[in-house]
């Protein structure tokens, strides 16, 4: 078995954003279920949090390919 350690690092770095995305949407769905009329207020916050968490995952992907 051969491979690069960078890919293992990428695998580890996706755990955090994965959990973060799960938490963001859990809170978003929870909020919508309690108060459906708050959608307009919650949706931008959920999008922004999702974008920030996803940016970290993509950083990991880029650095896994770049750092040798």
């Amino acid at each position: 078995m051969t491979g690069t350690l960078a890919i293992v690092g990428f695998g580890l770095s996706t755990i955090g954003p994965g959990i973060a995305t799960g938490l963001i949407f859990a809170a978003y769905i929870n909020g919508l279920a309690r108060q459906p009329e708050a959608r307009g207020l919650l949706q931008p916050i959920a999008f922004l949090g999702f974008a920030l968490a996803e940016a970290l995952a993509l950083f990991g992907l880029v650095l896994a390919f770049v750092l040798k």
Partner: peptide, 21 residues
Amino acid sequence: GIGGLLLGVTSAIYLIWLRFI
């Protein structure tokens, strides 16, 4: 390289803010 990555993420998040938020 690292500056470009940060600039790219910043511009992408700014664009997302403009478009959806």
